[in-house]
Amino acid sequence: MDERKGNIMKSVVDRAAMALAFVGFMAVSGCSSHPPPNAKVASSEAAIRAARETGGPSVPQAALHLKLAQEQLEEGKRLMRDNDNERASYVLSRAEVDAELALALSRAEDTKAKASKALENVRAVRSGAPTP
């Protein structure tokens, strides 16, 4: 009876150990096997392009965020080369939001300029001066 009990205990412990080992393996292998965030590279590159085309460089705040985006894109690519895909993924996300912010800022600036020009136009029309 004692021997049988001991055998059962042994098999339970064995199974637990195997399960633990499996979980450990999964955890370790999971950490090191983040897939390269190629999609994020593409999307931040697209966002940077869009920001640059909308005249980002001409609005100082937008130019700053565009620059940050470019720097972080490069940093993300470097991390990928070093096989730190998890960190690269975050850095690329940062690049993307910076580019999006640059785009939003330059758009807002552009619209503000147009609006103030239109207001000037209204004043000119009302005062009877010839409109440009």
Binding site: V97, A104, A108, K112, L119
Partner: peptide, 30 residues
Amino acid sequence: DLAYIAQRKAEIAEASGANEEARAQLAQAE
């Protein structure tokens, strides 16, 4: 990183809001 992204998103919301506001003014002026 997540905080950085959150901050930028808030700033994007503000810039986009300013853009919409200016657009409304533009339409009004036109």
